[in-house]
């Protein structure tokens, strides 16, 4: 198999890897905010449910979570899981990353001095205004480095979709490496992840620069 054939075959996998990446971010980042609010809720029941969810997600491997989500419906309910592979990947990744984002958001929200809430309160801002106008912008600035870390990890974690044989780039690459007894697919995969993360780091640095107008 020529190098270009390899690239083309892995290329279609790259699109799928990128799709996992983008969809996971789209779902997990807002979901993480909801989870963070649940985690900080005054309602003890809700707070403990959310705490349990976070501890399970963080305490078990993502690979295992993917397996459970994909095969669970079959073993539990004898459901046909034929077309479920891709949704299972997105659901698994989103649930997993939402927990991590939630804890990052929580750390950001809790790091804002109480004086900011008090100043907003005395000026008559509503709770929603206080959060959206005063707290959220400052929180975003504070959590950007941690979010960058998480996004870089996500780029590399997309390879875990191989666990349920979803044909993303790394799954394809390993198949080619085995069938062609070639080392080349691993190099291609490595370069792909590295360049993707260079882009992530570049974009996030720009975002940090944009928010560096205040301290």
């Amino acid at each position: 198999m020529s190098f270009s054939t390899m690239l083309i075959q892995m290329g279609s996998g790259m699109t799928k890897s990128l799709l996992i990446f983008v969809l996971t971010l789209i779902f997990s980042m807002p979901l993480g905010m909801i989870v963070a609010f649940g985690r900080m809720s005054k309602n003890t029941v809700l707070r403990n449910i959310v705490k349990f969810y976070i501890s399970v997600v963080r305490g078990t491997p993502l690979m295992l979570q993917l397996l459970v989500i994909f095969y669970g419906p079959f073993y539990l309910f004898k459901m046909n899981i034929g077309g479920f592979r891709f949704p299972a990947v997105i659901i698994g990744f989103s649930i997993n990353y939402a927990a991590y984002f939630a804890e990052i958001y929580r750390s950001g929200i809790q790091s804002i001095p109480v004086g900011q809430y008090e100043a907003a309160n005395v000026l008559g801002y509503s709770k929603q205004q206080t959060f959206m106008l005063i707290i959220l912008p400052q929180m975003i600035k504070r959590i950007l480095p941690a979010v960058t870390n998480e996004i870089i990890t996500l780029v590399k974690d997309t390879s875990l979709a191989f666990a349920i044989a979803y044909q993303e780039m790394f799954t394809v690459g390993k198949q080619i490496a085995a069938s062609q007894t070639s080392f080349l697919p691993f190099i291609i995969a490595g370069v792909f992840y590295y360049i993707s993360n260079l882009v992530v780091a570049f974009v996030m640095e720009k975002a940090e620069d944009k928010l560096s107008y205040y301290r």
Binding site: P113, G115, Q116, E118, A119, V122, L123, G124
Partner: peptide, 20 residues
């Protein structure tokens, strides 16, 4: 209570300006 907050202002020890 919200409407009554317009009656007074408060200046804090630590200013508590909005940094952004």
């Amino acid at each position: 209570l919200h409407s009554m907050k317009g009656n007074f202002g408060l200046v804090f020890q630590n200013f508590n300006l909005f940094p952004h």
